[in-house]
Amino acid sequence: MKYLLLIYSKEADWTDAEREQCIQDSAKICRELDSKRQYLSASPLLPVATATSIRLRQGKREVIDGPFAETTEQLGGYFLIDVANLDEAMEIAGRLPGVQRGTVEIRPIYDVPGLPIVKVE
């Protein structure tokens, strides 16, 4: 069962050094998950100030400079994992560095059979 772990926190809460530490700690978890064949993909995201949102209305493309929704906590990174059940996903989510000052939302993936699978190296 695949789960997407979405890491939300206040961008302003992190110093550069803390962010760097978070990335290194997360990378360690990625390697550990990979060794257990539970890892599919993961990455931090650039700040929400770099976001662009697009929608199509009456055939016309609207471009918005910013995220889909202005929230107090921003999506700062994600993990895509493949584990046996929600309990295992919760265990992993509970160890991510982001969980200490932000929130990790766990979303089960709706599996569509037959899609090409890209394994991120």
Binding site: L86, D87, P108
Partner: peptide, 8 residues
């Protein structure tokens, strides 16, 4: 069922 909570 969908989020696969463990039956354990």
């Amino acid at each position: 069922k969908l989020a696969k909570i463990r039956y354990e």
